[in-house]
Computed example of a mutant assay.
Amino acid sequence: MHQRYAAILGIENLELNQHYCPNNTNSASGLIQSTEPLTLNKQLFTDIKLSAQPMVINSVLKGSEMQLTDDKLILPTQQLSANDKRALWALMSEHLDKL
Rank of each mutant, 00 (worst) to 15 (best):
M1P: 15
M1I: 10
H2K: 15
H2T: 13
Q3H: 15
R4G: 00
R4F: 09
Y5S: 10
Y5G: 12
Y5C: 09
A7T: 11
A7K: 15
A7C: 09
G10T: 03
G10K: 04
E12K: 06
E12C: 04
N13P: 15
L14Y: 04
L14A: 06
E15R: 10
L16H: 07
N17P: 06
N17R: 07
N17S: 09
Q18E: 14
H19I: 15
Y20L: 05
Y20F: 12
C21V: 14
P22K: 00
T25K: 12
T25R: 12
T25N: 14
N26A: 11
S27Y: 03
S29M: 08
S29D: 09
G30M: 03
L31P: 12
I32V: 11
I32C: 07
L38S: 02
N41D: 14
Q43S: 07
Q43E: 11
F45Q: 01
T46G: 07
I48H: 01
S51Y: 14
S51T: 12
A52W: 03
A52R: 04
A52Y: 01
Q53A: 05
Q53C: 07
P54A: 02
P54D: 01
V56K: 05
I57A: 01
V60A: 00
L61Q: 09
L61V: 09
K62R: 08
G63W: 02
G63I: 05
G63R: 06
S64A: 07
S64V: 09
S64F: 08
E65D: 05
E65K: 10
M66T: 05
D70H: 12
D70R: 14
D70Q: 14
I74K: 01
L75R: 05
L75S: 05
L75D: 01
P76Y: 04
P76H: 01
Q78L: 08
L80S: 06
A82R: 09
A82P: 15
D84H: 10
D84K: 08
D84P: 05
R86Y: 13
L88M: 03
S93N: 15
S93A: 12
E94A: 06
L96V: 14
D97R: 14
K98Q: 13
L99N: 09
